[in-house]
Amino acid sequence: MLQLTRVSKHFGGLAVLREVSFTIERGEIVGLIGPNGAGKSTLFNLICGLARPNTGAISFAGRRIDGLPAHRVCALGLAKTSQLVRIFPGMSVTDNALVGALLRTRNIRQARSIAMAALERLGLGHAAYLSASDLGLVDRMRLELARALCTEPALLLVDELLAGLGPAEVNVTLELLRRLHSQGLTLAIIEHNLGALMRLCGRVLALDAGRLIAEGSPEAVSRDPRVVESYLGGAAGDA
């Protein structure tokens, strides 16, 4: 469904991604791990069209998407939620989701009912008429997910959804992602919470210093000496 072939990205002289290749098949939940600065978010930004790779190719559903602007990629069925939750604070909760639905219909009434359905699905129905700026962090995150779902994605990239959540909220969110997956959504997830990732993902990719260093089942990747070293090295470097 998604295929990256030797994708590289550098900012000025700084290589952020080096010849990264992998595929994601329909129906998977793939985790992406790596220490800070490994290039995870940059990788997601390249895939969703916020930035272009310097070399390499990205294909989604059989067509090249590198170089397409984000709204075109989104229209093809590939959506992303942001690491720092990005909602439209000046709009109502419903209107936030409605903007996503406008990609599928230009009829405001239809878009509104798509939005309401997505809000209900994520347990935000009660907040539909609030201003988005009145929501707490967890609900903002749900709202961003709802808006992404309104664009009717086949593949959803989730960039650090769990950051800042307490254990109970993490569980609720994981359950939510699992449910979306069971309803046919393919997921790729960046996450620092390795425990959560292990419970959720069928396959994990590990990135370090812009290179893909390991790939496989969560258990295998978490035991991979290079992965262990990259995390320990990072921790040692931080200390």
Binding site: L50, A75, K80, S82, I87, F88, G100, R106, C150, T151
Partner: peptide, 26 residues
């Protein structure tokens, strides 16, 4: 203000990148 364009413009007002990620042709 009531057309899809109005919603898109308000989204752009708040956050252009979020608008693009939500499928708005900014």
């Amino acid at each position: 203000a009531g057309w899809p364009l109005g919603y898109e413009l308000r989204a752009v007002y708040d956050d252009e990148i979020a608008a693009a990620l939500a499928g708005v042709n900014v």
